[in-house]
Simulated scan of single mutants.
Amino acid sequence: MNLQLERLYKNAGKDERLIIGLMSGTSMDGLDIALCSVKGNGAETQIRILEFETGDFTDDFRQKIKAIFSKKQVDLELVCLMNEHIANTHAELINDALKRWGYTAAEIDFIASHGQTIFHAPKAQHQLHDYPNGTLQIGDGDHIAVKTGIITLSDFRQKHLAAGGEGAPLAVYGDYLIFSKKDEDRIMLNIGGIANFTYLPGNLNASEIFSTDVGPGNTMMDQYVQKYYDVFYDKNAVIASSGKLNEKLFLALLNCRFFDGEFPKTTGPELFNLNYLASAQKASSTENINKEDVMATLCHFSAETISNSVKKCFGDAAAANVFMSGGGMHNPLLVNLLKAKLPQSVFRSTEDLGINPDAKEAVLFAVLANETLCGSPINFGRRQGVPSICMGKISLPE
C-alpha cells in the first residue's frame, strides 16, 4: 500500500481524530481555523473545539479576492493565480496558528478546507436552461496539504452538485449530527453574508430536516459601509441605529422572486449586492435618502426575510428554539428586530450547546470530513437539495 494511503487509513481509524476545520465566507473577514477533537461518527459524533482563531486577511489580500468575487466577467488569469494564492495564504495562517497553539503538523490528522467561494450559480438564479447548478470555491487542497504536511479534504460542494443539490447550504449535515435533540424542534440560524438556517425536528428523523438560504444577512450592509463609510462592517450597528426605516425602499427590496421559492433554496452576493440595492432605490424613488436610513432599511430587510422564513416553517405565531451563529448575531439592531418579529420564539447562541458560534461553520466542515473518512451512510430521504452523500476531495501531502 502507498505509504500516504496507509497514513490516511491509520488516521481515519483512530478513536480520536484531530481535524482542523477551515471557513472563509462571503464576508471575507478572515480565515476561521478550528482545531477539533472528533470521536465517533453519525449520530454518535462527539466533537470538542480545542483551539479557535480567525486568521486575519490583509487589506491587499482581501482586495485581490474582491477583484474576482461574485462577478460574471473577471480576469481568468487572476482566477487561475488566486486559486494557488488563496491556498498558500490559508496554509501560512494554519502553520502560524499551530505554532501559537503548540502543535506540530504530525499531531494533526486532517484538514477540512471549505475554500473561498468566488461565484455561486444555482439554476433558479442563472436561468440558463441548458446549464446545471454551479458553484466555485478556490484555494486548492493540494497546495494546503503540501504546505502544511497534513492530509487535506477540500472542494466539498462539488459532490453535492453532482448528486443533484445546489452546492449549498451544507450545514444540514453537520447540524443534524451535532445539534439534534430528541423531542425539541430546533432552528440553527447562521447569519453570515447570506443568512441560512437548518430545521432540526425533535423526532430525529433525518428525512425531515433541511437547510436553506433565506436571503441577505450581512452582505449588503457590509458592502454599503465599505463603499460609503470606509469601514469593513457596521460595528454594533452604530450607523444603522442612527437611521430610520424607509418603507418605500423596504417594500422594493422585498420585491424579488427568490423569496417566493420553496425550501430548500440557495442564493448569494451574486443576487443580493449594491446593484440590487440601486435597482430597489430607483424603483422606489429613494436614491437621495440619508445613508443612515439606507443602512437602517437594509437591516430591517435582513430581519424581515429571516423572520418570514421562520414563519413559513412554524406559522405566523412561530414559537421556535432558535440557536444563532455567524457575524450577524453580533449586530444588536438585527437581533432585536428578529426578537420583535418573532416574539414567541426563544433566541440563544450555539454557545449554549457547547460550540463557539463564531467557530460553528469551520467546525461543520470538520464534521463533514469526519463523515467522509469514518462515517456510515445516513439516509436524508430522496429530497431535492439534501442528497445522502459524503463530500470532499482528498489531497495527500507528499
Results as ranks from 00 to 15, higher is better:
98 L>V: 03
326 G>T: 01
167 G>H: 00
343 P>K: 08
176 Y>A: 01
247 E>S: 14
384 Q>F: 15
291 K>F: 08
284 S>P: 02
78 L>W: 01
325 S>H: 07
172 V>I: 15
343 P>W: 04
331 N>A: 11
196 N>I: 01
210 F>S: 06
246 N>I: 00
164 G>D: 09
84 E>K: 14
128 L>W: 11
40 G>W: 02
40 G>S: 07
55 G>M: 05
335 V>D: 09
378 I>P: 00
219 T>K: 02
232 F>N: 10
54 T>M: 12
6 E>F: 07
392 G>Y: 09
230 D>S: 14
128 L>S: 11
392 G>M: 12
328 G>Q: 09
345 S>L: 05
338 L>H: 07
126 H>M: 05
310 V>W: 12
263 F>T: 01
74 V>L: 08
151 I>M: 07
269 P>G: 13
95 N>T: 11
377 P>R: 11
379 N>D: 15
297 T>D: 12
350 T>D: 04
193 G>W: 00
356 N>G: 09
20 I>V: 08
88 N>L: 13
8 L>C: 07
280 A>E: 04
43 A>H: 11
118 I>W: 08
324 M>C: 15
351 E>M: 04
391 M>Q: 05
394 I>L: 12
44 E>H: 09
310 V>C: 07
239 I>L: 15
211 S>R: 02
246 N>L: 01
62 R>H: 02
108 I>A: 03
